[in-house]
């Protein structure tokens, strides 16, 4: 019995996530809050999220809460800070006459469980210049690093993964 209600909860949750996402895109694209436009947007978003919500069942989104939303915005801030500083670092390596690069492929481990959390971690690592994800098996990520500082697995996990994992752990707890 509890399994069935759990599944129903998942369905409602996916429906809500998709609906909020579509409404935000609609508002950004039309850039107006006249009631005709809003009504059309709500009707279309309801229709689309009703049809499409079942395709997102397997991803395993967590339930919505204030704490998660706050930490999600903190996470976006941290991601932007990392992108900016790492971009300047890679730009420096490119324009330096001697090109001080030490490329290599290293392995790191993650503590995250859900597929969606691992996907966000891998994509964040790829977005940050200097590192990108090549492959993933269960909790092990294969990473190309433009300036290898350590070959040890735990040390590399601390340097590459932990800055994002710290927040993702709380969001997907």
């Amino acid at each position: 019995m509890s399994e069935i209600t759990g599944k129903e909860n998942h369905k409602v949750r996916n429906f809500l996530y998709l609906f909020i996402f579509l409404i935000i895109i609609w508002l950004a694209l039309t850039s107006s809050i006249q009631w005709q436009e809003l009504t059309a947007g709500i009707v279309i978003s309801l229709f689309l999220s009703f049809i499409l919500s079942k395709y997102y069942l397997k991803l395993g989104f967590p339930p919505l809460s204030i704490k998660r939303i706050v930490f999600f915005f903190i996470y976006i801030g941290v991601l932007f800070k990392e992108i900016l500083s790492a971009n300047i670092d890679v730009a420096y390596r490119i324009i330096h006459p001697k090109m001080p690069i030490k490329p290599g492929i290293v392995v790191i481990k993650t503590v995250l469980k859900q597929d969606i959390a691992k996907m966000i971690l891998a994509n964040s690592i790829t977005l940050t210049p200097g590192t990108f994800t090549l492959d993933i098996i269960d909790d092990i990520l294969l990473i190309h690093w433009i300036n290898v500082k350590t070959k040890d697995v735990d040390e590399a996990t601390r340097m590459i993964g932990e800055r994002f994992e710290r927040y993702l752990k709380i969001i997907f707890a």
């Binding site: 690069i101 030490k102 490329p103 290599g104 492929i105 290293v106 392995v107 294969l142 290898v148 070959k151």
Partner: peptide, 8 residues
Amino acid sequence: DRSVVDKT
């Protein structure tokens, strides 16, 4: 050639 490690 300049690569320092390959854990593939």
